[in-house]
Computed example of a mutant assay.
Amino acid sequence: MIREVLLSTFLAAIPVAGQACETVEFDNAPFTFCEIDLSETELRLFLRDRQGAILGTFARVEAALGEGERLGVAMNAGMFHEDRSPVGLYIEDGEQEMRIVTSDGPGNFGLLPNGVLCLNDHEADVIESRRFAENPPECQYATQSGPMLVIDGDLHPRFLASGTSLNIRNGVGISADGERLFLAISDEPVNFHHFGRFFRDYLETPNALYFDGRVSRLHAPGIGRSDLGFPVGPIIGVVMDDTVDGAEPAE
């Protein structure tokens, strides 16, 4: 169960098809997170349509789904270049579009250690990038981003409680038992240390990965939220049956 510390719940949704979202306060800042039961959901990554054009928005992802399918919880899922192609490793439906990048470099992506989210049927893992590269697992879907927020229970070593870089931030973490995936976004600007602690101390995820800042987006039909903004790169989303109650269309 999620630890009830430094917490007050603002908004909670009734779970729909293995997914439920809440807005909470943690250490004087609001966060929205969605808990996804991996045993009950189909989770995919999305980048391009059948013609090769970048999708980039929740509405276009939903429009690209098959008949009878609807987009559930979704979020932008990794950093991207100006043409919105992935910066690091990207695998979709078993096909690799971009190789893994293990060198350090400028920006948040190059703030090593960074990591990879690896998805397979009803299971997921967040793996440090160099460890991933040394012994690559099979991933039906994978996206690389950075930095890691939580690494085997510890915050990224470069994070400072006094850090002055504040942004709206989003990321992903996996529960210790590997059965639940958490997508979270800060609802006001926070630093990396604060955001990492949300995953480590509140969501209690031993490993968590930063997706992005400033361009962070969340689609959460169960709480009536679908963030707008200019198009992004990779998107992670739950694919659900169109007949399921609470499956409002993406905006």
Rank of each mutant, 00 (worst) to 15 (best):
A250H: 04
D37W: 00
I185E: 05
P113R: 05
P147V: 00
D27A: 15
S39I: 02
D49V: 01
T164D: 03
G171P: 01
L218S: 00
S39G: 15
L6T: 14
R200T: 00
A13C: 14
R225D: 00
D152V: 07
I236R: 11
A247R: 04
S216N: 07
F33T: 06
H219K: 05
F195H: 13
V172R: 01
N120I: 00
P113V: 00
M79R: 08
F192T: 07
S103K: 15
C21M: 08
F31Y: 00
E138D: 14
V150D: 06
D241L: 11
E138G: 14
R130P: 02
S226Y: 07
F26T: 03
S145Y: 12
T164L: 15
F198N: 04
T205F: 01
N207W: 02
A247E: 01
Q144L: 07
P221E: 06
G94T: 08
V116K: 11
F159A: 05
M79F: 06
G171H: 02
Q140S: 15
I235D: 11
L45V: 04
L47I: 09
V244M: 08
P249W: 07
G66Y: 13
D212N: 03
E128M: 04
F10E: 15
C118V: 05
A74L: 04
R197W: 01
E95R: 13
N170T: 12
D154T: 13
G88F: 06
D187H: 06
S175W: 05
E179I: 11
L149F: 02
G94D: 06
P136R: 02
R50G: 13
L166G: 07
E134Y: 09
